[in-house]
């Protein structure tokens, strides 16, 4: 059995035929579309590395079938900013040294974007609670929290 999947990823429309229904969205993004920014760690929803935005909401791309994304708008880390024009959160990650090996970073950034949109993030506790579904083996999290705290402050400035 195979199906056709039509999705918009980072503003580009893709129509892919011959997709097996069992293909995970994470593998569709990485292998079929060649967008390897989305990382795959655990494939059971625990590490958060594969998190992408689907119609604006963060989801685990390893826990969604590509066929379920038919018709959706997806944003991966490649869609946030470019090396010469980082978005606010990416710039704060650089500023605060919020990454070391970078494996968790795509998931941290996408999760951070969704948290910034949905929660006040007024305290570090709230930021840590929001990040609890994303594992990092390098940084010890302090600088990731600092980067998100700074991005939340910038967002508050922009609003007022």
């Amino acid at each position: 059995m195979s199906v056709t999947v039509s999705v918009t990823v980072n503003g580009t429309k893709y129509d892919v035929s011959d997709v097996e229904p069992r293909l995970l969205l994470s593998d569709f993004l990485r292998e079929t579309l060649g967008l390897t920014g989305t990382h795959v760690g655990c494939e059971h929803g625990v590490c958060g590395a594969c998190t992408v935005l689907v119609n604006g909401d963060s989801v685990r791309s390893c826990l969604m079938l590509a066929v379920q994304a038919n018709g959706a708008e997806i944003t991966t880390v490649e869609g946030l900013g470019t090396p010469v024009a980082l978005n606010t959160l990416q710039a704060e990650f650089r500023e605060h040294h919020g990454l070391q090996c970078g494996f968790c970073t795509p998931g941290m950034l996408i999760t951070g974007e969704d948290l910034l949109r949905k929660y006040p993030l007024a305290t570090d506790d709230e930021i840590r609670e929001g990040l609890s579904g994303n594992l990092c083996r390098c940084t010890g999290y302090q600088n990731i929290v600092a980067a998100i705290r700074a991005a939340a402050a910038k967002r508050a400035e922009a609003v007022t």
């Binding site: 909401d57 963060s58 989801v59 685990r60 969704d114 948290l115 929001g130 609890s132 579904g133 994303n134």
Partner: peptide, 8 residues
């Protein structure tokens, strides 16, 4: 769970 899991 976590936000990304609550979203689905």
């Amino acid at each position: 769970a976590h936000l990304a899991i609550r979203n689905r």
